[in-house]
Write a protein that binds this DNA or RNA. Structure first.
Length: 558
RNA sequence: ACGCGAUUAGUUCAGAUGGAAGAACACAGGACUUUGACUCCUGAUGUCGGUAGUUCAAAUCUAUCAUCGCGUGCCA
């Protein structure tokens, strides 16, 4: 029984107080995406927060689609959002749509009119905006603000019945035209929009605005803590105003704001993400370079790594920019325990072992995962011709380079010691082949004479290895904060021209049956995931992340 | 300009009722190693945004200033 008493974040603190004072017996949170795009890692933070609260306080969490604007919403997005939440490993207690409440919302709007707290305004959007003026001075009341309840009622019903054109009038709440908070200057509650809705079809031609719909929806569902991001902070007084109009019990949901996630070297706004997809800067929402949940999934990230990440970055009200390196830390940590090791050569260099018999092949035992003995072992074949990594040979090597060099000896992982004797080059001076000799006594990687060989490199047998496409991904942007632009530039100017490199790699034979979404560690190279489009006759691997590499640092310092 | 909010190590966050500044990642050094990975040791870094005040005692309370963010859609 591990009782690790971590300190509570400010939201957990609030909830614990509410529970201990008896304000609530059980909490209910909600995750309320608008189905107008794919979920990204910022949403993952919110999901982990809301569903995490449910788990730690034994409450409930609803998934509610905030589908009050039919001009932007599609069922495709609804499905992807559900899939992403499930993939992260969370289960919602109820699936709701704001559109489920259109009838109730309408009735409450009628009630507000009858109370003299809402009116139909026939002015243009421009006019309404002008009258709101600015926060430093009082606003100007609409000429329609004080028309009779009967007239408002009649007009609103006619709006609902489709008698008026889009944009010709709106229903406004009568709040306070002099408030320093612009959201309180008679906000729009309903607009006319003759659009087909993905769920209600053509039943409605008036649709509620976020500010009106959101709090009331929370109320209907009995949400206790309505958690949203900081930019809604200034909406809170209005959220409460609308609730006051319908609630007599005093048991109202409470809106709490936290700082959204910003990740370095990427963008997070739906608009920009959509633009990247629409203009083919990436190959779809699930492109492995995208910060979407589906992108991370395809890239090979595990749900655990993302959840651990979300837990670690915490929840606060401070603006933040999280280093993408932290996410990489969590995926390495997770896969180090889970991923089987295999050998693969990303940039092949042929090596001929001149003293090894021509037609001989032998099987060497290789461990699948040193971190997990139960993963067992496998056999890898070895013969006279093998491939090694081009990087693992240097003709003129610095002192600290302990891989293969002329006259030097190196260990082939699970295999023999080999020594390089001859370098074969083409007419342009490029190295095409190495001739080496092996020490037959060193099978398995140890020599009976006990001599030390510092370097161990990976390799594959040229007889049995298989070719595969390997996609080497790098960050999508070259700038830490691509949204921080200079004059005449946009975030697109910071796209990394080298964010993916495609290699034909040589893989050990055991990978022939690798299935889509299976993850491996290519020893000394990184973690890789079989792409969802991979086939047995055309294998495709995505690089999830490289291994930590202290060699490039050492080399860089020389 | 006005309103609201934020400010603790390089970064993200902890620091109830005021009582000797903490964690993780990153970084540096070392041990181990058939992955220059992993693991394990060790280490450095903070005028707790500034100033003034209350107090025996302030990161914590008060005032004030500064800086940054958000808000003036019939988007969410």
């Amino acid at each position: 029984m591990e009782e690790k008493k971590e300190s509570l974040n400010f939201i957990e603190q609030i909830i614990e107080d509410d529970l201990s004072t008896g304000k609530h017996k059980q909490i209910i949170t909600r995750f309320p995406p608008e189905p107008n795009g794919y979920l990204h890692i910022g949403h993952a933070k919110s999901i982990c927060l809301n569903f995490g609260l449910k788990e730690t306080f034994k409450g409930k969490t609803n998934l509610r689609f905030d589908d009050t604007n039919p001009s932007k919403e599609e069922t495709e997005y609804v499905e992807s959002i559900i899939e992403d939440i499930k993939w992260l490993g969370f289960e919602y207690d109820n699936l709701f749509y704001a559109s489920d409440y259109f009838e109730q919302l309408f009735e409450w709007a009628v009630m507000l009119i009858k109370d003299g707290k809402a009116y139909v305004d026939e002015q243009t959007p421009e006019h309404i905006s002008e009258q709101r003026t600015n926060p430093t001075i009082n606003g100007i009341e609409s000429p329609f603000r004080n028309r009779s309840i009967e007239e408002n009622l009649k007009l609103f019903l006619e709006m609902k019945d489709g008698k008026y054109a889009d944009g010709s009038m709106v229903l406004r709440a009568k709040v306070d035209m002099n408030s320093p908070n612009m959201h309180m200057r008679d906000p729009v509650m309903y607009r006319i929009m003759k659009k087909h809705h993905h769920r209600t079809g053509d039943k409605w031609c008036i649709y509620p605005m976020y500010d009106y719909a959101h709090g009331q929806s929370d109320y209907i569902e009995g949400i206790t803590h309505s958690i949203c991001t900081l930019e809604f902070e200034v909406h809170r007084p209005l959220y409460e105003w609308f609730l006051e109009q319908i609630d007599t019990t005093g048991k109202r949901p409470r809106q709490i704001e936290f700082a959204r996630l910003n990740l370095s070297y990427t963008v997070m706004s739906k608009r920009k993400l959509l633009e990247l997809v629409k203009n083919n800067y990436v190959n779809g929402w699930d492109d492995p370079r995208m910060p979407t949940i589906s992108g991370f999934r395809r890239r090979g990230y595990t749900p655990d790594s993302i959840r651990n990440f979300a837990d670690r970055i915490g929840v606060a009200r401070r603006e933040n920019m999280i280093d993408v390196g932290l996410l990489e830390f969590f995926i390495r940590e997770d896969l180090n325990k889970k991923a089987n090791r295999v050998m693969a050569i990303l940039n092949p260099l042929k090596v001929i072992i001149t003293n090894y018999p021509e037609n001989k092949t032998e099987q060497l035992e290789a461990q699948n995962n040193p971190e997990d003995i139960s993963a067992g072992s496998r056999e890898v074949s070895f013969s006279r011709e093998i491939y090694i990594e081009q990087d693992d040979f240097m003709e003129e090597a610095p002192n600290k380079f302990f891989r293969l060099k002329p006259g030097g000896e190196v260990r082939l992982r699970y295999g023999y010691f080999i020594k390089c004797n001859e370098i074969i080059k083409d007419n342009d001076g490029n190295i095409t082949e190495l001739h080496c000799t092996y020490d037959p006594e060193s099978k398995g990687g140890q020599s009976p004479d006990g001599r030390k060989v510092k370097g161990t490199i990976h390799w594959v047998d040229s007889q049995t290895c298989i070719d595969a496409e390997v996609r080497l991904y790098d960050r999508l942007f070259v700038k830490e904060n691509p949204e921080d632009t200079n004059e005449n530039e946009t975030y697109l100017d910071y796209l990394n021209p080298d964010s993916v490199r495609i290699n034909t790699a040589k893989l050990e034979q055991s990978l022939l049956y690798a299935k889509p979404m299976e993850r491996f560690q290519f020893e000394r190279k990184g973690y890789f995931c079989v792409d969802k489009d991979s086939k047995q006759d055309k294998l495709i691997f995505n690089r999830i992340v490289t291994l930590k590499d202290s060699w490039t640092k050492i080399a860089g310092n020389e």
